[in-house]
Design a protein around this nucleic acid. Sequence first.
DNA 1: CGCCAAGTTCACGTAGTCTTGAACGCGGTG
DNA 2: CACCGCGTTCAAGACTACGTGAACTTGGCG
Lengths: 206, 206
Amino acid sequence: MKGYGWSDAPMVSPGDPEEGGLPRWESIAVEAVGHVIEFWGFKHNQGRVWALLYLRATAMSATQLEDALGLSKGGVSMLVRDLERWGVVHRVRQPGAGAWHYASETDLVRMVTRVIEERELAFLSRIRAELTEARRVASSAPGVARDRLARLERMNSLAQAAERALRVFLRTARLDVRSMLATFRDPGAALRARGSAPLSVPQQKS
Amino acid sequence: MKGYGWSDAPMVSPGDPEEGGLPRWESIAVEAVGHVIEFWGFKHNQGRVWALLYLRATAMSATQLEDALGLSKGGVSMLVRDLERWGVVHRVRQPGAGAWHYASETDLVRMVTRVIEERELAFLSRIRAELTEARRVASSAPGVARDRLARLERMNSLAQAAERALRVFLRTARLDVRSMLATFRDPGAALRARGSAPLSVPQQKS
DNA sequence: CGCCAAGTTCACGTAGTCTTGAACGCGGTG
DNA sequence: CACCGCGTTCAAGACTACGTGAACTTGGCG
């Protein structure tokens, strides 16, 4: 797999280029989102771009994004294109300027769950199909011991379980998110909601 | 992220080396598990090794694994070592032979959920910590507009939601799996249990 | 009509991960 | 004691994904 903050080095390296002059707090947040998004199977920079656009409520031009995040022209182009395709960023004409400006939508999470839904679920179903196929082939082949077949069968139900679990996950995630979107759209709600569900984090290593 | 059966090419390439002579059904199943396991953040070949050991109820030597799966000597060594460390494979002395033989445990799934739990959950918590930090820095810095802060706050609750969702996922996955382990341990149960899973299940070792 | 800036596309370089294969250590056997 | 097979380790290679930057296209405006 990919990066995953495995190491114990800080995720935002303390002495790095300082993000082309982004205020430190923005830089931290942007980077954090970058990591989350990468975690869910997207590109780090897609997350960074979205996060920056989201944090500044205002739309930004490609050039601004370039030197705010230290990306190349081509890079920004491809990144915003992807984000646009997923509907989490849209381009607008800014009154004064000739160039396009990009603005974030709030439904990053929707994108994540939807894409995961499509991608991962399809993936798992496919696996299950393969296992079924294997079982078919095996049972119609001569000389395959019975307990071997049984094991295949059990593997199959394992895949089924995984798929079921993922499905549940997506459903609950969507619920969580839906209740959160309200928060997202209603400024101030976030502050009000602070108390609920503190969810302390049990830390355990092996 | 990684491979993810994105493309529409068949997952088991039709004309490939035929896995050093594995029967086709075994090859399909082994490959399927390989993909699943990779999906969860492990190596493809770790899944293949485990799957083969599991499908053959019998223990196999390193050499057997090598040419059954087309791996190198060093590769097998490292793979089984990892699997051993995770407790999903263990080595045994075979009566007749001098070399080690490897056998599979049934709790592959347990391993997956546990590792995910430790790894991913820690990851998400960390993100949340970072966002909190960003908020701290931002609020103690001069001239940060109020709505910017609010947006940060909302991001934070987004991360919280993700974490909560993951937690739920792991919990349900574990339930599903637990009910399945019975199936795994009890040959023949797979056939009986086809409909819905039995719920009372003996919990065992860690 | 042609210019210039913005945007897009693509071959290449780079970084990171996984696998290989050779060198080494170990233990048993003739 | 030397040999030989098995297991381990590690540096080098293969492979893949990502970002870059230059060439190219597009669109607005004089």
